[in-house]
Structure formats: C-alpha cells, structure tokens
C-alpha cells in the first residue's frame, strides 16, 4: 500500500527544530546587547547591521527577539510542568480513589474549568504581581484544572483494566499502581494534551506580557515588544511584525508536530 508522506510531521519537526535552535542561540549569543539603547538607530529599518531593524529606543530587534523567545519557551515549559505535575497528582488521586475526595475536588475543578484559563491567570497575577516567575505560577495554576480532568478520566478508564487487578493481586501499593502501572499507560493521551498545553501557554504568556502584566523588563518578551511596537506601526512595521511572526512560527511548528505525531500513531 502506498503510504502518504506525513508532511505535518516533517514540516512540524523542521519548524520546531529551527525555533529551538533559534532560542538556544539566544541563550548564548545575540548580535547586540538586547538592552543597549542607541539613539542614532531609533526605529531603524532592516539593514545588514540590524537584520530586523531597531525599536523605539534603538535596541536591536533581532537580539531582543532572540532573548524574548527564550523567555517565552522558559515560561511555557514551566507552566506546562506545573500544570502537568499537579494535574497528574490530583487527577490520579481523584480518578483512582473516587469517593468524597473526588466529589469535592472535581466540583471545584469543574467550576474552575468552566473559567477561561487566561482569566484565572489574571486573578493570580493581580494577587501576586507580575514578573517572569509569577507568570509561570499563575499560568501553571490556571492550567491545572484541564490537566486534572484529562488525567482523571484516563485513570477512571484504566483502573478497571486487568493489568491493574493483577498488580493489586501481587500486592503492589496504591502509589505504585498509580504511578508505575497506570501512569505510563496514560502517556499517549497525556502527551498530546501537553503539546496543546504548551501552545496555549505560549499564546497566554504573549497575551499577558502584551497586557503589561506578564514578563516585566528587563526580561525581553515577545508579547511586550508587540505592545511597544503598536504605536509605531506606520513608521516601523517590522518592529511588530518580527516578534509576531516568531510567535506564530513557534506555535505553528509545534501544532503541526503534534498533529504529525498523532497521525503517525494511527
């Protein structure tokens, strides 16, 4: 049988690979100091000296985009890590044990789940203040309900499988059954929601930084650059365009990759 090429997987991995290289590069090398202001090249256009031009303070946009995408990746990874770990914990306990604990926790989770996660994050930010780490905490907490629900439904489904009963018969502890036996079996479902969650985290971080309540200076952030760039759309369109494009490429590459992987699994 003729097998169709999995273009999603190919293009997705290429794009994601490039973006990761781009971000890694940003950790070690930027053409200029991302914070160095230069009044003479204020809002300068694209040139061989400044491949993406300069912003309203004369800072090199390429350097800032390199740094900013690193920040975005860091925040997104942290967010997903918190959301997944706590989500797994809550989902595993409620799904495996059920009962009153499940009732109470899921009631709260459901109520929070109905809430758009960006709004939850806003509530937390308003309580703990903005900043890179606070954004991670706020978004991470906001992501807990959806991860908990996914893990819980998987645990509910898996806990009645034969392999669980046989593990019980062998005297495995509840902890061991939950995290050594059941958890690996939830990975196919969990990994795809992690990838979707990662994209949502990138978009949410960008949105919050755009609003001015996300990553704070001196940390460079793509969302914040966009909000600064908005006043200079006519004079320096590249100022807004490049950070935006980087966000799109990041999310697009990752979602293509996720889709490619799920097709490859079929």
């Amino acid at each position: 049988m003729k097998k169709k090429k999995n273009w999603n997987l190919i293009i997705g991995s290429l794009m994601t690979g490039c973006m990761i290289l781009f971000m890694l590069l940003g950790l070690f090398y930027t053409p200029y100091d991302p914070e160095a202001m230069d009044a003479s090249s204020k809002l300068a256009g694209i040139s061989s000296a400044h491949l993406m031009g300069c912003d309203n303070f004369g800072r090199d946009i390429l350097s800032r985009v390199l740094k900013g995408s690193g920040t975005t990746l860091f925040v997104a990874a942290g967010t997903v890590a918190i959301g997944t770990l706590v989500g797994i914990f809550i989902g595993a306990l409620t799904g495996y044990y059920g009962g009153i604990l499940d009732e109470v926790l899921m009631r709260i989770i459901d109520a929070l789940f109905a809430f758009p996660s960006i709004l939850l994050a806003l509530v937390f930010i308003s309580l703990i203040g903005p900043g890179k780490y606070n954004v991670i905490v706020a978004l991470g907490i906001a992501f807990i309900p959806s991860f908990s629900r996914i893990v819980r439904s998987q645990f509910l489904y898996q806990k009645n499988m034969d392999y669980v009963s046989s593990a019980k018969l062998q005297g495995a502890s509840a902890f061991r059954i939950m995290f050594v036996h059941i958890l690996p079996n939830t990975l196919p479902v969990l990994s795809s929601s992690i990838m979707i969650g990662f994209n949502n985290a990138v978009l949410a971080e960008a949105g919050m930084s755009y609003l001015g309540i996300g990553v704070q200076p001196p940390d460079a952030s793509l969302g914040r650059m966009l909000s600064e760039a908005q006043s200079y759309l006519v004079t320096a369109p590249g100022f807004a365009l490049f950070p935006g494009l980087i966000i799109i490429l990041m999310v697009l590459g990752f979602s293509l990759l996720a889709e490619g992987i799920s097709h490859a699994g079929d």
Partner: peptide, 9 residues
C-alpha cells in the same frame, strides 16, 4: 497559531 492580539495589530 496566530495570537488574537497580534491578529488585531
């Protein structure tokens, strides 16, 4: 993949 606010911009 486009953030709505960037679409707005």
């Amino acid at each position: 993949a486009v953030p709505p606010f960037f679409l707005g911009i």
